[in-house]
């Protein structure tokens, strides 16, 4: 139980032949309403490996709802969302293994440091034990928060917290990256670093769907822009 790594995880292992295969995330006429209140008007979206779709729209237009449906954490009231032709449900190990999302704030362990969180996440996804520390440090360096590696989450500022949350999502293996306004609370320099990181993920073959209000970041990462119209 404890000695084994990949055999024991219920998720498909990251990397390998699956990671090389193209992936396609598609939403057709997806909409969401609860008790007559429309949260998201029907919308179409498609993104494949190596592409980035930026979702824009005014506050309350349904961008986050769309991302939650694409992440499989919320069921659409109408239309369908598919990942490689199959349904998206975060209860399915296959969905979890391929889709990483930063929608809202993930709750952190208050008794683990920043770098501990990365090692924990990596280990649960079957990352190589010998290089976990090194890879975690590299990611923190790439976001220029390596000096925060031994801080606890409650010791971070608002912007640092956001970078920490981004690091958590970027560090876990995935083929689809869903980010809800990743530019918020970041200064201009950090937005540039994040943009570089997302461009690199796209070049590595990941599919990205990003809700974004920053025109510069949108211009740098987007292959297509979809405007969500408020219901």
């Amino acid at each position: 139980m404890f000695a084994r790594r990949r055999h024991d995880t219920t998720e498909p292992p990251p990397g390998g032949s699956e990671s090389a295969a193209p992936i396609r995330l598609e939403a057709t006429g997806v909409g969401k309403h609860i008790d007559g209140n429309v949260l998201l008007s029907p919308i179409d979206l498609a993104v494949s490996s190596g592409e980035c779709v930026v979702v824009r729209g005014e506050n309350g237009s349904g961008k986050t709802t769309l991302l939650r449906i694409l992440a499989g954490t919320l069921e659409a009231s109408e239309g369908s969302a598919t990942l490689d032709g199959g349904s998206i449900d975060e209860r399915h190990p296959g969905t979890r293994a391929r889709v990483a999302a930063l929608i809202g704030y993930p709750t952190a362990y208050r008794d683990l440091t920043v770098v501990d969180h990365l090692v924990l996440i990596d280990s649960t996804w079957g990352g190589a034990i010998g290089t976990a520390d090194e890879r975690a440090d590299d990611l923190l360096v790439s976001l220029e928060i390596d000096h925060l590696s031994e801080r606890f989450p409650h010791e971070l500022s608002s912007g640092q917290q956001h970078l920490f949350h981004l690091a958590l999502v970027l560090f876990r293996p995935s083929r689809v990256l869903l980010l809800d306004e990743p530019e918020q609370r970041l200064d201009t320099h950090k937005r540039g670093l994040l943009t570089e990181s997302l461009v690199a993920r796209k070049a590595a073959g990941d599919a990205l769907v990003v809700a974004c209000h920053d025109p510069e970041m949108t211009a740098a990462i987007a292959d297509r822009v979809i405007d969500v119209v408020a219901p």
Binding site: M1, F2, L112, T113, V119, L120, S123, F152
Partner: peptide
């Protein structure tokens, strides 16, 4: 804070 969580198998690391 300087004591790091060691990478292990999925259950053991938790």
């Amino acid at each position: 804070r300087r004591t790091r969580l060691r990478a292990r198998g999925p259950v053991a690391v938790l």
